[in-house]
């Protein structure tokens, strides 16, 4: 069992959901300068194959639907890293009419990276932190989502319905 846990933390296949400006920080993280393949993290093409979902910026209600769907397609155990202040408290989109402000209400997040936007060093740091968390058995946000599915679904439905309501006006 220890071997499985070890391999789980050493081989994270990630899917970056490229919303907002955080996507531009990913190419340097992947390529020669910062090279995240050292830690066994490689980009994967589909949510089915990946373990790690990166939400790289603000989410409109429309995008949130796609994120939730992608997240639910991933096989467990799965982890989420959210980038930048937009995913925490709305950031510069605080008073926007169609962005969500707290990602944590809709899908469970393991690690937030502070900044607007975070530098590749911060991203690498978050990856290592996540690796340590998995080793210690602390990265359990996916269990949280399964246990509190009703609460998450309620929050999602609320925001999707509000969108419908505002479209009517």
């Amino acid at each position: 069992m220890g071997l499985f846990k070890f391999s789980r933390s050493r081989s994270l296949w990630m899917m970056h959901f490229c919303t907002g400006c955080g996507a531009i920080e990913m190419p340097p993280t992947m390529t020669s300068r910062y090279d995240m393949e050292r830690f066994g993290i490689i980009p994967m093409a589909t949510p089915r194959q990946s373990d790690l979902l990166l939400v790289t910026g603000y989410l409109t209600v429309k995008t949130l639907k796609r994120v939730v769907r992608s997240y639910e397609q991933m096989a467990e155990p799965k982890y989420v890293i959210a980038f930048g202040s937009c995913t925490m408290r709305g950031g510069m989109y605080w008073d926007s009419y169609n962005t969500v402000k707290e990602l944590d209400l809709y899908i469970p997040v393991d690690i937030y990276i502070n900044g607007c936007m975070p530098r590749p060093e911060a991203i690498i740091d978050a990856f290592i932190k996540l690796r340590d968390m998995i080793d210690k058995g602390e990265a359990n946000a996916w269990k949280n989502y399964r246990d509190n599915l009703d609460w998450y679904k309620q929050n999602q439905a609320k925001v999707f319905d509000i969108n419908k309501w505002s479209a009517k006006i």
Partner: peptide
């Protein structure tokens, strides 16, 4: 590609995972 690269046993870890 001028990167450091994963350890040589990386694929074994991938399959185990």
């Amino acid at each position: 590609q001028n990167r450091y690269g994963p350890p040589f046993y990386q694929n074994i870890l991938d399959v185990l995972k």
